[in-house]
Amino acid sequence: MIKSDALTRAWVVLIALSGLSAVVSTMMDRGFDTRIMGSVVLALALMKARIILSRYLGLADAPSWRRGFNLTLTLFCLLLLGLYLFPQL
């Protein structure tokens, strides 16, 4: 049997996170605080990137590498968030 359950779950979660991103961006258009909504959009992007690394690229089986990639990606997204929020400070 093909071991694809974790992969299929990852795909479903990625689709759900993408839908959530669309909902959040609509809320931004309707006047919700762009600082909060922007932070949520970036957090959702980070979650999607982590899932792609773990399940699609197989880093779930390489925990040391997964930790390194996740840490770097998290720091990168924090940098993007800082640059995004800077004009609104």
Binding site: S21, V24, S25, M28, D29, T34, G38, V41, L42, L44, A45, K48, A49, I52, L53, Y56, L57, L80, Y84
Partner: peptide
């Protein structure tokens, strides 16, 4: 497939920054 996943990974970071962060 790894190359394709990299393309996918780049897009999930590119899309919110270019299209969503107003």
């Amino acid at each position: 497939a790894a190359f394709w996943h990299m393309v996918d990974l780049v897009w999930v970071l590119l899309f919110p920054v270019i299209y969503l962060l107003a």
